[in-house]
Every structure is written in C-alpha cells, then in structure tokens.
Computed example of a mutant assay.
Amino acid sequence: MPRRRALSPDEAELWRSVARTARPMHFHPTRPATAAEPAPAPEPAPLQHSKPRLSPFLLSEKHRTPERRDLAPALPDLLGQAPLRMDAGTHTKMTRGKLAPEARIDLHGMTLAEAHPELIRFILNAQAQGLRLVLVITGKGKRREDAGPIPHRTGALRHQVPHWLQLPPLGPAVLQVTEAHLKHGGSGAYYVYLRRR
C-alpha cells in the first residue's frame, strides 16, 4: 500500500474550493448543499460486557444436553393437570381401578364421524339412567410408518374423545375424565365420571 503524504498549503486550499462546490449524491433538502470538511468520527462507546449465551465449557467436561421442551404435552399429562372436580377419595379409587365401571362403550375401529354421535348417545343415556362411572374404550391407535419430518400422533379417537367430553352437549354431563387403569384398558380407554342429573 503506498504511503500517504501530507498536502501542501496550496493543495489543501484547492481541495477545500472543490469540496465547497460538490453536492452529495443523495441530496437531502434539510442538509446544506455545500460539503464541509468531514466531521471527526465520534469516539466509540466503551464496550459493556454482557452475559455469555453459552456456559463455559472445559476440555475434560462431558457435553450437557439442554432440557427438552415438549410443545404438545402427552394426553395423560393434560388430563392429570385438569382440576379435580370430584371427591378426592373416589377419584383415587377410580384411578387405581378399584371402582368398577357401570357401563362401557367400545369405539375402537370406528371413524371420528361414526364415533361422535355414538359417544353423545351413550353418555347422555348413562346420565339419564343415573349411572356415575362409565368406561369409554378408544383403542391406542395403529402405528404407521413415519412418512415425513413432522411427527404425528397415533390414535385419532384417543386424542379426540377428551375434547368431545368437554364440549356441549357432553360437557355439562361430565364431571371428570381420567385415563383408565390397566385392568380396564390403560391408555386405550377413559373413565368418565358423570354428574348427577
């Protein structure tokens, strides 16, 4: 790179006269049309140290995996987070499989369009008969080959039935929904505890 030399007084005067007549390429009406000598650049502000995004890593240290965040929690977790609206002792007996369901419906193998009206009919009839605990069997769903990058959950009925039980016309009839005990079908069935009429 060639070394810069200082301008002589004549050259500096010539440069100033040329700079006065020059207009900026992007003319702005609020700025003056003549360009003066360039203003000195402002001194940079002192750097502030921020927290490092990653924790320090030592050479002999094992890799720490970050905690996994599941954006769509599993169905048993969602049902377990629901508020308890029935007697706690009865709920404990029910979840341990010590209460026998008074009636059951098997939706296993039905489509969503077939299962929804059957479930409505069954729940409303059971409540009209004065039953309290019924069993809704949905099945666990068929496992399919994973065909793409987006995971899909198995068991359309298994995931849809708890939503149907919260919506009208079934919502006012249902007091509590929990996953059934293993002896009554486990994750492929639900205990539905009904309100008294």
Rank of each mutant, 00 (worst) to 15 (best):
L7Y: 01
A12F: 00
R16S: 10
R16V: 06
P24E: 13
H26L: 06
H28F: 06
E37D: 13
P38W: 03
P40R: 11
P40G: 03
P40E: 13
P46Y: 08
P46Q: 11
L47F: 14
L47P: 11
Q48T: 15
S50V: 10
E61M: 05
E61V: 00
P66G: 06
D70C: 08
P73E: 08
A74H: 03
L75A: 04
L78F: 04
L79I: 05
P83I: 05
P83H: 11
T90D: 07
H91C: 09
T92D: 11
T95D: 05
G97V: 05
L99S: 08
L99W: 04
P101K: 00
A103V: 05
A103H: 04
I105R: 02
A113R: 09
A115G: 03
H116T: 02
E118R: 12
I123M: 03
I123N: 10
L131M: 09
L135R: 15
G139Y: 07
E145H: 15
G148R: 04
P149T: 01
I150N: 10
R153M: 12
G155C: 08
A156T: 15
L157V: 11
L165D: 05
L167E: 12
L170Q: 02
Q176S: 15
E179A: 15
H181L: 03
L182G: 10
L194K: 11
R196G: 08
